[in-house]
Design a protein around this nucleic acid. Structure first.
Lengths: 114, 114
DNA sequence: AGAATGTGCAACCCCAGAGTTGCACATTCT
DNA sequence: AGAATGTGCAACTCTGGGGTTGCACATTCT
């Protein structure tokens, strides 16, 4: 469905935030290095990074025998704006039906304020 | 850990977006009504609404024999701002270490500038 | 070339969560 | 009071995701 679902799913895990946090400090790091800073296996880290990459929150680039990952702050920002827009649309819709309810008298069957 | 995790987890499911969508149009609705607009049971809807409520994205209020749910756009907005702030912090940190890397010549083990 | 180091793949375990069904209880309607 | 309608609770199934281990393959170092 919506592409943002992958972002939300990616952000719904504490371990992944740990990874993003490390990447924000290290600028670039391999799965092996990142794993040392977390209570999980390298393999687990690799899977998490795959999820983050699919969501666009991280980029991977090969450098010789190692894979270096970097955080993509823009993607987070993008999603934040997307959410703000969604929130605004909700408000608009709610305001609209509120107006309708006020102009059209009988919600069920109440006469409007005199 | 972070309270926002619950929000992200809540938003990572398409069915729940369906519920939020309906609530944005109906302003208020019961689980029974919402279920008719979705391909799942009322019970499933109830569980989803519970998740959304714990995350603060929805409010529940009892009205006689029925439970009416309403969407809370502010919560979404709040989270959006939180994310934007996080993105900004990432950028700042990345900029900082970039500066460090530039001022200190060789990436590895050079004595600091005299 | 051989040892080290780093990735990648596959099989497997385990549990939280999405969903269902069945039934009891509360409230409203007639 | 009795029928309808709406919630709430509990037990159960089943798939996906987080995590692990073991091993094969690639690249770098000496």
């Amino acid at each position: 469905m919506i592409a943002e679902l992958e972002v939300f799913a990616a952000l719904a895990d504490p371990t992944r935030w740990g990874l993003l946090d490390q990447l924000a400090d290290r600028r670039e790091a391999t799965a092996t290095v990142l794993a040392t800073g977390l209570p999980v296996t390298r393999q687990a880290v690799v899977k998490h990074l795959a999820v983050l990459e699919r969501a666009g929150l991280v980029t991977a680039r090969r450098e010789g025998r190692e894979m270096r990952y970097a955080v993509r702050a823009e993607r987070l920002n993008e999603t934040a704006r997307w959410m703000a827009a969604a929130a605004r649309r909700w408000d608009d819709r709610l305001a609209t039906i509120k107006h309708l309810a006020e102009s059209a008298p009988t919600t069920d069957n109440q006469p409007p304020a005199p």
